[in-house]
Computed example of a mutant assay.
Amino acid sequence: MKTKMTRKERERKARKELIIDVTEKIIEERGYENITMDEIAEKAEMGKGSLYLYFKNKTSIILAICDRGSRILTQSMSKVLTQEITGLEMIEKLGQTYFQFIKDNPLYFNAFSYFEGLMNRDALDESPMAKKCEENAKEAMTFIIRSIQIGMQDGSIDSSYNPKELGLIVWGASKGVVHMAYMKQKEQHMAVLDEVEFSLESLIDTFMQLVGQGMKNTDHQSENV
């Protein structure tokens, strides 16, 4: 049972949410590279010293944005597993949910990428917010693996695969597809991306078709024809 927050705790949480809101707006206007603690404090209408009582640096605020985005995403993904559909259909729905979320919220995708770029830094080992981001990522992976296991049980997914390994492939490939699409939008990117005409939507459609066909249990399909 959750304990009721005190007034002081509620006020502190509200102030932290305000700081995150303000930072998101600044990032949407000018990108992650151009934010400063001074501007965040000014936009949040608080002293810089007060800001440091809530977040010790820019990285901690961006990790909070990552946590917020990943929580929203995992909540949407969790709803897929409550539907009365096959495991293969769940995988397709999870993919659609992820891609739609990224399309609607590119700021959060960039926050995820920022977090992953920090993964090798020892400082993150002591960051509670980084651990929350990691826990959210693990939860999303659990949804993918569980859907695959359900599909193997209901016969819609080929059971010869290792569900955890297959889940990792789906998760990693999904991130790669989105990364390529966003890279093409930037001025500096690999020349090979200019040699192929594609959009995020076209990549997603092709990827989802490949994923669905690749893990489909063809014997189960023929039994239902």
Rank of each mutant, 00 (worst) to 15 (best):
H220W: 15
M152L: 06
T6E: 08
P128S: 03
S113H: 10
D154V: 14
M77F: 10
E39V: 07
K186R: 12
R121K: 13
M77E: 09
Y108T: 01
A130N: 12
N224W: 08
A123V: 11
T74H: 07
Y182E: 14
K8T: 12
S202N: 03
N110M: 10
T82P: 02
Q75V: 14
N110P: 00
A191C: 00
N224R: 14
D122C: 01
T74C: 08
I61G: 03
F99H: 11
E24M: 13
I62L: 10
S113Y: 09
S113A: 12
I19E: 02
L81N: 02
M152E: 09
G69V: 02
I157F: 03
Y52G: 00
I169H: 14
M180P: 02
H179I: 09
E84D: 15
E24R: 14
L88Q: 06
A130Y: 04
I145E: 05
N162V: 11
M90Q: 15
G117Y: 06
A191I: 03
S199W: 04
K13A: 04
A41S: 12
D158F: 02
V225C: 06
A137E: 08
L193H: 01
K58L: 12
P128R: 04
E33L: 11
D122Q: 13
M119D: 08
S222I: 08
N224P: 00
D122W: 11
M1L: 13
E89K: 15
L88W: 06
N217Q: 03
N105C: 05
E39Q: 11
K164P: 01
S147V: 09
M77R: 03
Y52N: 00
G87Y: 10
K132Y: 03
L210V: 10
G151R: 06
N162T: 12
G214A: 13
Y32W: 11
K131H: 08
K43G: 06
T23P: 03
S202C: 03
K93V: 00
V192C: 01
L73R: 05
S147Y: 01
K175W: 07
F207Q: 05
M5P: 05
V177Y: 10
L200R: 05
C66W: 00
G151V: 10
I145Q: 01
Y114W: 13
D154G: 13
I26E: 09
D122I: 04
E134P: 00
F55T: 04
R71N: 12
R68Q: 07
A44I: 12
E187N: 08
L51Y: 05
E84V: 05
I169K: 11
K2R: 15
E135M: 09
K131F: 01
E9D: 14
D194Q: 07
S159T: 11
S159W: 03
Y161A: 08
E135H: 06
L94N: 02
D205W: 00
A181G: 15
Q83W: 05
R71E: 12
H179Y: 11
A137S: 10
I204R: 08
